[in-house]
Amino acid sequence: MKGLYCKSSGRSDVNFFIQETDLPGTLGNHQVKVQVKACALSPLDLKLLEDLQLQRDLVPVGREISGIVLQVGPKVTFFQPDDEVVGILPLDAEVSGLSDVVLIHEHHLVQKPEKVSWAEAAGSIQDGVRAYTALHTLARMATGHTLLLLDGASPFGVLAIQLAHYHGVKVLACAHSQEDQLFLEQLRPHVGVQESVVARVISQSDGKVDLVESCLEETGGLGVDIVVDSGVRLYEEEPEHRRLLPHKHDIITLLGVGGHWITPEDNLQLDPPDSRSLFLKGASLSFLNEEVWGASRACQGRYLHIMKDVVEKLSSGTLRPQLEDPVPLHKATVSMEMVQQKKVRKKVVIQL
């Protein structure tokens, strides 16, 4: 049985390759054997694995899977053979999701609706969990709020926009290129509907549009209720690949009273004046890391509820992911290299 693995000699020097692998001979009490039909690819966070002391010589690649249950452990209660399921392998999984068959604990899986394809299910589950974590868990979004999404055309951004619009949130989204801007302007909640899900698309491709002015103009000077960024600049001078990111002062300036700033920037540094500005606004800062759901068994029920809601909204058409055409397994290595280098804008799914 083959699987995709990563060998790293540093955080930036990684090598992906397909290798033969074996499964344990027996199922654990709560384990489920799944025949994988599709597996989505996301960039590896090697720093996170290192911090959690999960770094190994060979790191399994591909955690977002959909497939058919082949066999269940003696104490499994949620599933039975022939069930169609979707789930996320845990960070400490020893087998790649690109294997023909994987063993996974039943609490990392949910039922896949019949109307949802294998590729859609695998390609949406992790970004869907991330969107729910940002908007529901951290930002406590509610009808009438205004959301600023700093990279609206990313796979995560598209699902976050659709989820926010469904709950009556006004969405402002930034576009990093002309293609992204056109895509966001044409994004609709359903086929044939004229109304756009994005109230305003803010172009950041040429640096000519002032982000703060645009947001304050759109909110009558009050500021936005929720900001979800995709990274921020900490200093005026940053490397070329970070030049389109907003400065942290801009985020604080456009945030409204009682607002929520959600960031994946794990090395964010706030100076005392920054903290003072947030204090005066009664605003909050939260760090977006959807992997925390696996950190405590007390959160397992909420985690499963989120995954179930993601697939239900996929089935109803509320969430519609942007996927690349399914890729065969023999092209998985090249595809993963492009994903790791962030050279693809849509979600890449490997069809097995």
Rank of each mutant, 00 (worst) to 15 (best):
F78V: 07
A332Y: 08
F279C: 10
A38P: 02
S154D: 04
L245H: 12
G223W: 00
L163F: 08
Q300D: 11
S203T: 07
R188F: 04
H145N: 15
I251V: 12
Q162M: 12
S316R: 07
G144S: 11
L245R: 13
A153G: 11
A295Y: 15
Q19D: 14
G317P: 05
T77P: 01
R200W: 00
L27F: 13
H260F: 05
V209L: 08
F78M: 13
Y303G: 02
E84K: 12
L288Y: 05
L352S: 01
G256Q: 00
G128A: 09
S12A: 13
A121P: 04
E195T: 15
H136W: 10
A298P: 06
L150C: 13
G25E: 14
I226K: 02
W118Q: 07
L89I: 09
G128F: 01
L278K: 01
D180P: 03
P43D: 06
G87A: 01
Y5Q: 08
V257L: 05
S316P: 00
V85W: 02
L91C: 07
G67N: 02
L138H: 10
R130D: 12
V14S: 14
E291M: 03
A131D: 02
G87F: 02
N29F: 13
Q55V: 12
D100Y: 02
D210K: 10
H145S: 10
D83F: 13
G294D: 13
E236N: 09
W293L: 07
P60D: 07
L288I: 05
G317T: 03
D151R: 14
V349N: 03
V339S: 05
A139K: 00
G207T: 06
F78L: 12
D82K: 10
S117K: 06
E312C: 00
T137F: 03
I306Q: 00
S96W: 12
Q300F: 10
T143M: 14
K115V: 10
Q126M: 11
K33A: 15
P189T: 10
D225I: 00
S316A: 06
V76T: 13
Q322V: 14
A139T: 05
K248V: 15
D13T: 14
P246S: 08
G67E: 03
P321D: 04
A295S: 15
T333G: 07
H136G: 05
T333Y: 03
G73V: 08
R345N: 11
V197F: 10
Y166P: 00
Y132H: 09
V224I: 06
R243K: 10
A122I: 01
L352P: 03
E236T: 09
S203N: 14
I202L: 09
L285F: 04
S315W: 04
D83I: 00
V32L: 11
V224R: 00
E237V: 08
A93L: 07
T333H: 08
G144C: 08
T26L: 06
P74K: 15
V129L: 14
W118N: 03
L135P: 04
I202W: 11
K248P: 00
D225H: 07
E291K: 09
G144P: 08
K343N: 08
L244R: 11
V232A: 10
L27G: 11
V101F: 15
Q322N: 08
G144D: 09
A199N: 10
